[in-house]
Computed example of a mutant assay.
Amino acid sequence: MALAIGDAAPDFTLPDQNGTPVSLESLRGQRVVVYFYPKDDTPGCTKEACNFRDQWSAFADHGIAVLGISKDGAASHAKFIAKYTLPFTLLSDAEPCPVATAYESYGLKTFMGREYMGMMRHTFVIDAEGKLERIYTKVKADSMADTILSDLGLA
């Protein structure tokens, strides 16, 4: 079943770049951007992460948390963060994972009209009450952060 604006955002608890568990529920009371991406340090994923980095002050000024999620492990995330000076948290949704995977809760990947489990490049804005405020399934890696800020009237 596809998620829709106004739905409760599926909760998750995943390890960050330091191996520390982070739950979506713990961020209630503030807006959260959750963006799923395929792999650390690849061209499109780097463009997307750097766009969030370059717009970080606007997100921080408005109290918006940013969480990037991929299947890469904590060590890979730590290197990616260090290499590009990323100021936000990256979470690992690797298999096997001791907690429920987030990508399964947030939707299926689509390729050539077929849906299947896999890491998609989708972005979600979750409001302070934990409801989906915006859903982006067609992500432009080099301008996703700009688009979000504009759509929220913060640009």
Score class of each variant (00 low, 15 high):
20 T>K: 15
21 P>G: 07
21 P>F: 04
23 S>A: 14
23 S>F: 10
25 E>S: 15
25 E>L: 12
25 E>T: 14
25 E>Y: 11
26 S>K: 11
26 S>G: 07
29 G>F: 13
30 Q>C: 06
37 Y>E: 01
38 P>C: 05
39 K>W: 02
41 D>M: 03
41 D>F: 00
43 P>L: 11
45 C>I: 00
46 T>I: 11
47 K>D: 02
47 K>E: 02
48 E>H: 01
48 E>F: 01
48 E>G: 00
49 A>W: 06
50 C>Y: 03
52 F>W: 11
52 F>K: 06
53 R>C: 07
56 W>R: 09
60 A>E: 12
60 A>C: 00
61 D>G: 12
63 G>L: 05
64 I>T: 07
66 V>T: 09
67 L>H: 12
67 L>A: 11
69 I>C: 07
70 S>K: 05
71 K>G: 08
72 D>M: 07
73 G>K: 13
74 A>N: 07
75 A>D: 15
76 S>R: 00
77 H>V: 00
77 H>W: 05
79 K>R: 14
79 K>E: 14
80 F>R: 08
81 I>V: 15
82 A>L: 07
83 K>F: 01
83 K>A: 14
86 L>E: 09
87 P>S: 05
87 P>H: 10
91 L>C: 13
92 S>I: 09
94 A>F: 14
95 E>P: 02
95 E>K: 02
95 E>C: 00
96 P>R: 03
97 C>F: 00
97 C>P: 03
98 P>Y: 06
102 A>W: 10
107 G>N: 10
108 L>H: 04
110 T>D: 12
112 M>R: 15
112 M>S: 15
